[in-house]
Design a protein around this nucleic acid. Structure first.
Length: 323
DNA sequence: GCGACAG
DNA sequence: ATCTTGTCGC
């Protein structure tokens, strides 16, 4: 059964979401925190991750969330995890994280429990970081909730804070010479929100790179270029390819089977290297994480007793690392 | 009615 | 995000 898309959430929900974004935004670190980020050759960097969510065509609820880990600098897949999920929140520009991030956090958490040695040292996220309506896009959101360095990589310019995909912008793109060339995206406030990057020599459309978490914009842009065999950074590209393949395979079996997102655990094991015992994701206990993961949007399960309201002073970064 | 709109 | 395989061109 292809379930219908949820409509736009009521303003009340959006207000709660904005509040949560503002709260979590205070935890974003927009500088390099790791030694390899400062190294000219990124020496010390061995694993880069990518996440993506692909959708079932006639269904706005069923999707495949994937997390892949690639070796660096070889960019060979070391780990892959694809799983079917049921999305609860609708897509609303500016609130992408509330739709996709809970499942990505789950995937990272499972990796942390089962194969901690394969934990990526940085995650590429399909979407923006601080280049966002309120300075807190999905790459920041995932970064704060996982405590991992994250890079936001968008394929289209999000036109916020005075940024416009106008003739001048297009001209700047046209003037980019070779792969690695970029120009800053300055918001109305004079802040550089991100960079437009020509990811390889023969790419017409740029990538829009912005800081997610625990990484400077300069390092983020340089590493993004270093991970591009094609226009899309290999970690995100592999996550995308593999999640789509997973959907194709899943739908191809048994005629037109009704998807059982959380039920068929046999086929949802990591497919590559590791062979850990399967187990259901542990229940999270952090309040902030709970509010994020089990959002306020159409949840049937009881959520945390006292959601984020008035909990601003209770937030401590260390707690977030304990997911 | 018109333009915007990460995924 | 998704609709889509082979085909034309460098």
């Amino acid at each position: 059964m292809a379930r219908k898309a949820a409509g736009r959430p009521p303003e009340e929900t959006l207000s709660l979401w904005k509040r949560e974004q503002a709260l979590l935004k205070t935890l974003v670190v927009d500088r390099d925190t790791e030694a390899w980020q400062r190294d000219p050759a990124f020496s010390g960097l061995q694993r880069v991750g990518g996440v993506d969510v692909s959708f079932v065509k006639g269904d706005s609820v069923s999707a495949c969330a994937s997390l892949v880990v690639l070796s660096y600098p070889e960019l060979e897949v070391m780990y892959e995890d694809c799983r079917m999920v049921s999305l609860t929140a609708p897509y609303v520009s500016g609130f992408l994280a509330f739709r996709e991030v809970p499942f990505l956090v789950d995937a990272v958490q499972q990796l942390r429990e089962k194969e901690p040695r394969l934990m990526p040292q940085v995650l590429f996220v399909d979407g923006n970081g601080v280049l966002h309506h309120r300075g807190f896009g999905v790459a920041c959101h995932l970064g704060v909730l996982t405590d991992l360095p994250c890079i936001g990589v968008a394929k289209k310019l999000l036109q916020v804070d005075g940024l416009e995909n106008n003739a001048l912008h297009k001209e700047k793109i046209r003037l980019l010479q070779g792969g690695g060339d970029s120009f800053p995206l300055m918001g109305g406030s004079g802040t550089v929100l991100g960079m437009a990057l020509k990811s390889h020599d023969h790419s017409t459309k740029p990538l829009y790179v912005s800081v997610g978490h625990k990484m400077s914009l300069e390092a983020a842009v340089r590493l993004t270029h270093g991970c591009c065999k094609f226009r899309i950074p290999e970690p995100v590209r592999q996550a995308d390819i593999r999640s789509r393949d997973y959907i194709r395979r899943t739908l191809g079996v048994q005629g037109a089977p009704a998807l059982r997102p959380e039920r068929s655990k046999k086929a949802q094991r990591p497919k590559a290297c590791p062979q850990g015992a399967s187990e259901e994701p542990a229940e999270v206990s952090c309040c902030v994480l709970n509010c994020s993961v089990k959002s306020t949007w159409q949840r049937t399960e009881p959520t945390c007793p006292s959601p984020c309201e008035g909990a601003i002073l209770e937030v401590h970064p260390p707690a977030l690392a304990v997911i």
